[in-house]
Design a protein around this nucleic acid. Structure first.
Length: 135
DNA sequence: GCCAACGTTGGC
DNA sequence: GCCAACGTTGGC
């Protein structure tokens, strides 16, 4: 099972919206590198839900429930279907991520504008640990 | 509000 | 095919 990180502006679609909806089509991605990552996703993969903008935190974990299919709004692009698994309480802030040496190689730090990025196994565990040990 | 990073567009 | 200009994203 692979792990991912997916960003959204909470003002446009946030974790609470996903929890309310029960599932969502993760569409609107218009970046070639992000599209490659979407296409690599398999049902059962897990992804962090990251709030960009003011919050700048990983706020929850979701599960990929359907592989990539043509984006309903534009068939040149793709979307996957996701479901919320559980919130990260407390959220893991970008600040905490940057302060953790084990996360120095994180793709989302290297390319801050990339909205869908892969997360290595060790990195996934390190972020979960940050959530558990946060004050 | 500004700026860095990066993608896209259009002129040549 | 190159590159300058411009637009967007996201962090500070």
């Amino acid at each position: 099972m692979a792990h991912w990180l997916m960003k959204s502006e909470p003002g446009s679609y946030g974790w609470p919206d996903l929890v309310r909806d029960g599932s969502a089509e993760w569409d609107g991605v218009r970046n070639a590198a992000a599209r490659l990552h979407l296409k690599a996703m398999r049902p059962g993969d897990e992804a962090f839900f990251y709030h960009s903008g003011d919050q700048r935190s990983v706020v929850g974990i979701m599960r990929i429930v359907r592989a990539a299919a043509p984006d309903p709004k534009d068939g040149d692009w793709v979307s996957v279907a996701v479901e919320p698994l559980r919130p990260l309480a407390p959220p893991v802030t970008l600040k905490a991520i940057k302060a953790e040496p084990r996360l120095a190689g994180l793709e989302m730090l290297r390319q801050s504008r990339l909205s869908v990025s892969p997360i290595r196994e060790e990195e996934w565990r390190a972020i979960l640990q940050l959530a558990e040990t946060a004050p």
